[in-house]
């Protein structure tokens, strides 16, 4: 048997090798083949997930919702102390001092990261801004978001906080943060497909104990994670309910 693993495309490029090291670690732990496939783009990955291509998915919170409610996946673990938070930043010399200073017609630069974009748009609501009265420039990575903010090609950029924190000081010093979310309970999760649930407990236990040995800790470090903690079914449902409230329809 070979397990097919994929990872939400929103991690920093510096940690790509970390996920391949994790893949090798997981193969040894489970004594089975694990195939890792990475994507540049959320839509292409989502299409393959829906087609049943993957058994194990490290998903962003919005995709976790689809995986659990539509495809019957179950969350095994979440990364310790790593909530998904969003930052809206502008050029340090911009006249804008707060979100409420933005006017209709404002230009946004974003990636196609669904949770960051949703939370970002929620944080623009106090300025009466939404998709109908803003212009969005979608780019491939947070580094390119930053470049566009620095070149003042857009009024503000949306960032995953982790990705913002990993930008160089040279870049960060040329931006100012208008608002940073403090939601705390929305995070990535590692989910297992319904057809492999008999392995759920083994995989979950190995991941939780990963932090207990030196090799496991070094793999975690290469992925920029502190460790994993178990996710109960109700905790998963709670997060998905919360995300549902953030989708206006």
């Amino acid at each position: 048997m070979t397990l097919n693993l994929t990872v939400s495309p929103d991690f920093a490029p510096d940690h790509i090798s970390g996920w391949f090291i994790f893949n090798t670690w997981l193969q040894r732990q489970l004594g089975t083949g694990v195939h890792l496939e990475l994507y540049d783009c959320f839509d292409a990955q989502r299409k393959d997930i829906k087609a049943g291509k993957f058994d194990l998915v490290y998903a962003n919170p919005f995709d976790a919702s689809m995986l659990v409610r539509e495809l019957g996946f179950k969350a095994l673990v979440r990364p310790i102390s790593k909530p998904d938070e969003t930052i809206i930043a502008t050029h340090k010399d911009a006249a804008i001092q707060s979100v409420e200073d933005l006017k209709p017609g404002a230009t946004l630069v974003t990636t196609d990261d669904p949770d960051v974009n949703r939370i970002g748009m929620i944080m623009l609501e106090p300025a009466d801004l939404d998709a109908s009265n803003t212009e969005t420039l979608a780019v491939d990575s947070y580094v390119i978001v930053a470049k566009n903010v620095l070149n003042q090609n857009a009024d503000v950029g949306f960032f995953l906080k982790d990705a913002y924190d990993e930008l160089s000081d040279l870049i960060k010093n040329q931006m100012k943060i208008l608002v940073s979310s403090e939601i705390s309970v929305v995070h990535h999760t590692l989910l297992l497909s319904p057809k492999l649930q008999k392995y759920a407990s083994t995989i979950q236990q190995r991941l939780i104990k990963m932090i207990d040995d030196e090799k496991g800790r070094s793999v975690l470090e290469s992925m920029n994670l502190l460790g994993w903690e178990a996710m109960t079914e109700e905790e998963t449902e709670f997060m998905i309910d919360l995300i549902d409230t953030l989708i206006d329809e």
């Binding site: 929620i122 609501e125 106090p126 919360l242």
Partner: peptide
């Protein structure tokens, strides 16, 4: 579940 956010 009730979630509240900042209004304009």
């Amino acid at each position: 579940t009730s979630v509240r956010r900042k209004p304009s």
